[in-house]
Amino acid sequence: MKKYLIRRLLEVIPILLFISILIFVILNAMPGDALLQMRMENPRAFANDPAALEKLRVHYGLDQPVYVRYGVWLGKMLQGDLGYSSTYRVPVLNLLQSRIPNTLLLTITAWLIGLIVALPIGIYSAIKKYSAFDFLATGFAFVGISLPHFWFALMAIIVFSVQLGWLPISGMSSYGVTGTWEIFIDRFRHLILPACILGFVQVAYWVRYIRTSLIEVMNMDYIRTAYSKGITRKKVIFKHALKNALIPIITILALDIPYFFGGAVIVETVFSWPGMGRLMYQAVLGSDHNLAINCLIFLALITLLSNLMADFLYAFVDPRIRYN
C-alpha cells in the first residue's frame, strides 16, 4: 500500500504540470496584458515615447514566445518566486497569504455546516425510508440541487439583510469594531450567510448519498444476523450499519472539497468576501495574468489533493481494499 500511495503522489506532478501549461497558454491567449493596462492608466507617458513601451516589453519578457515565458515562470515559481500582481502592485505571495485564510475560514465552515446538517437528515431518512420525513428530505435535496448558488445568495441578502436587517449585507468585518469578543461576533455575523449558502447546496447531494449508502448496507446479510442475535435496533444501526455505510461517504466528503472552492468564487463575489475566489475573478477580469495563474494553480492543487485524499482515506478506512 505504501508503494501505491507514493505512486499516486508522484502522479500529481505531471498532471499539475500539464494543467499549468494549459492555464498559461489560455491566459496568454487572452486579450490585454500588464503593458496594456499601464498604457491605459497612464496614456500620456507612452504617447510621446514608443521606445519606452518596447523597453518595458523586453524588461517583462513579453517579447519572448510563450514557451520561453512558461519556462522562466516555472523556474521562478519552483524557487518560490511567484512574481508581482500588476493590479495590486504587491508580491502575489503576500496577496495569497492574506486571502487564503479567509477562503479557508469560509469553505471549512461551509463544509462543517454541510456535514452537520446532512448526516442526521441522511441517516434518519434512511432508517425511516418512505416515511413523511424521508419524502420531505428527498424534496429538500432536489430543491438544493436545483438552486442556483448566486440567486439563493441574492434572495437571502434581500430577505435577511435588506428587508429584515438582521445580518450584514457583505464583506468580512465592520469598520471600527474593537474588542476581541466584539470582533469575533462581528466576524461570525458576516460569516453566517455565505457559509450557510455554500454549505446548503452540498447538503442536498450528501443527504442523497448518505441515504442510499445506508439503505444499501441495511439490506446486507450481516445486519440481519445482528438483528437475529437480539441486538437493539439502535446498536445495529450505529455499531454495524453506519460504520460500513460511512466508507463511501468519507470519499465523497473529500472529493467534493473542490466544489466548495469553485462555489466560493460565486459566493465570495456576491458577498464581497475577501478570499481566493473573488481574488481570482478580479485577476482574470483585470488581465492580471500573474495573479490569475497563481490563483488557478492553487485551485488546481486543491482539486488534485482532495482527489488524492479521497483515495487515501478510502484505502485507509476500508480494510477490504488492497492495492499493489
Binding site: I15, F261, V265, M280, Y281, L304, N307
Partner: peptide, 14 residues
C-alpha cells in the same frame, strides 16, 4: 482535475 468553474470563467473571457 482541472478546477472547472474558474477555468470556465477564464475561457469565456479569452
Amino acid at each position: 482535475s482541472i478546477p472547472m468553474f474558474p477555468v470556465l470563467l477564464t475561457l469565456t473571457l479569452v
